[in-house]
Every structure is written in structure tokens, then in C-alpha cells.
Design a binder for these strands. Structure first.
Lengths: 156, 156
DNA sequence: TGTAACGTGTTGAGAGTTCAACTATTTCGT
DNA sequence: ACGAAATAGTTGAACTCTCAACACGTTACA
């Protein structure tokens, strides 16, 4: 019955450390962004991807992929940010199902001012506490995890 | 004006890798637990900590610390899990402000059955994709991050 | 060309999280 | 011993996220 591959002590410790770091760190990121700029990190991420797109404009589905959002999440988020005046939606001429999301100037300004504090936080609590070697390792570890997940499980 | 320490290309890549891995991985963990056991990961974590406590019982504030929850989150969570019959609350005799949370047998069973699939997921998508060296590195990186945050920012 | 399968995006309900405000109790300083 | 400040925990509102269901346009294939 019990062919579960449980974690040994080493692994248990690693897992708990990872969990703790993850929670503490992202809680901070989230809170800093929320307090200083009124943006959840997911929204920030969406604005970043839009700002990098040609004409600051992307199809919803592509934006969802780039920002690692589910379609549903993105839809809600863009609706919300459209109300706030940071994003504008428009129809796609070549595919009538499609929608474009476009970053407005107000959205760009918001993003621009949010970015400073955010980067500062990332630097302080991530890069500043890691050696160059550890930074390299983190990149490789992250890539391994991402690759391992491949995409056997994309959300709806 | 601009003394912001922006990220260079290397750092940018590392940060985005980390972000992507983080999102994909924890989305999976969350979904697996939710689908298979009807538990958000935060609730699972709370049950784990309770199960490890003497008499499977802890003061709310201590439980909050151990499970890395805000007091508010824990309060809501325990309320919900008490309805479900997994946890029981009782008054603390020595401090009339205090409350104990105690894991019920039903709660223990739920935890026990949830743990298998959860561990399997952690093993598959974390440990299986990392070399022993990377596992060590991950532990050190995580500890460094946690320590770096120290506790200049505990939630309300 | 007709229709079934697929893709794109939205919606509403349900659930968890946060934040600020609040009650009740305990501790500390004088 | 008294009042101020700190601690324990709860609550309700606002917000985001997920999930399932949906509407509509497109593609493929017979």
C-alpha cells in the first residue's frame, strides 16, 4: 500500500526552508507593491509584459502566457485595470474572437513609479543576500523546476 | 534622482526564472492539494504544525508563527476548519485572552490522506529535478533569504 | 457547405487573504 | 493600585483567484 516516496530528514529540512523563504519573501514583495503602488504583483507583472510589447499592445492570450496568468485571471485583472485607466481593450480585426490589451500612458506612469520600490525590494531581499555563485545556482534550480513542470498542467 | 539599483541582464534573467519557477511550482502544489483533498496549502500547513505539537494542540499565536500565517488568516482558517470538524478550539485557563486549537481525529485523518499525494508532488517536481548539489544549494539559498528578511516586517 | 471540434475571451459564484478596526485581557511604569 | 500601552484573537469589507459554464468565432473534414 505504502509505496509513497516520503521525504528523509535532509529533504524535509530543505523543503521547509524553501517553503519558509518562499512565503516570507513573496509576502514582502506583495505587500511592498500593494502599499506603495496599489498593485498586486500579478497586475504589476501584466503591466510589465505589456510595456515590453510592440506598441505596448498584446493579444489577451499571449499576454496571459507571458505573464503566467490563467485566461480567467487575466480577464478579471484587465477589466479592473481598464476601470483604473491603466489599460485599454480593443477588438482584433483579423480574428473577431480576439481582444487586444494596450497599456495607456497613465498605466505606463503607474508602472514606472511602481518599478523603483519594487526593484529595490527584490535587490535587498534576494540579490543582496546571495553570493554570485548562489545567484547562478538559483537560476539553474529555477530553470530545472520550470522545465520539470514542462507543461503537463496548464490552467483553463 | 535615480539612485535605484536596477537589475542588470544577468540578474533580470535570474529573477524572471525564479519568478516563473515559483509560480508554476506553487500553482501545481496548490491545485493538487485542493483537487485531491479539498485543502489549500496554507490549511495543510496549519494541520501539519498542529499534528506535530504535544497533544496536537497549540495556542493560536504560536500556531500562527509556526505555520507562517497572519493572525487574521489563522483565525479565519481555524473557523473554517472547525466547521469542517478538523479542528477544535478551547479557552486557555491561564490567559483568558488565549485560545487553543486542537487537531481532531477527523482532522488527523484528513491530513494523513492528503499527505501522500502532496509529498509525491513535491518529490516529483522539486527533488526529482534537482541534483543533490542543487538541493544543498537550495537549502542554503532559502536560509539566506529567510535570514535576510529577519523580521523587519511581521504582519498584523 | 455543413457541422463538429476547437480556440478566445468573459462571467458569476465561491473561497481565501488582507487590512483596519475592535473587544478583552494582561503587563508595565509610577 | 491605577491608567497607559501592549498582547491575543476575532470580525467584516474589499479584493483577488479559481473553477465551471458560457458565448461566439474559427478551423477542419467529410
Amino acid at each position: 500500500m505504502d509505496d509513497t516516496r516520503w521525504l528523509d530528514d535532509q529533504e524535509q529540512q530543505t523543503w521547509r526552508s524553501f517553503l519558509a523563504a518562499h512565503r516570507l519573501f513573496f509576502e514582502r514583495i506583495e505587500r511592498q507593491l500593494q502599499q506603495d503602488s496599489g498593485l498586486p504583483h500579478a497586475y504589476f507583472e501584466i503591466l510589465v509584459r505589456l510595456s515590453e510589447a510592440p506598441d505596448r499592445r498584446l493579444r489577451m492570450s499571449e499576454l496571459a502566457t507571458n505573464s503566467m496568468s490563467s485566461r480567467s485571471r487575466l480577464s478579471h485583472a484587465v477589466a479592473r485595470m481598464e476601470e483604473a485607466g491603466w489599460v485599454r481593450r480593443s477588438a482584433c480585426p483579423t480574428d473577431k474572437r480576439g481582444q487586444f490589451a494596450e497599456l495607456t500612458d497613465a498605466g505606463f506612469d503607474r508602472l514606472d513609479s511602481a518599478a523603483r520600490g519594487h526593484v529595490e525590494e527584490v535587490r535587498t531581499y534576494l540579490f543582496d543576500v546571495l553570493t554570485p555563485e548562489q545567484q547562478r545556482a538559483l537560476r539553474e534550480i529555477s530553470d530545472a523546476i520550470t522545465e520539470g513542470i514542462g507543461d503537463g498542467g496548464a490552467p483553463a
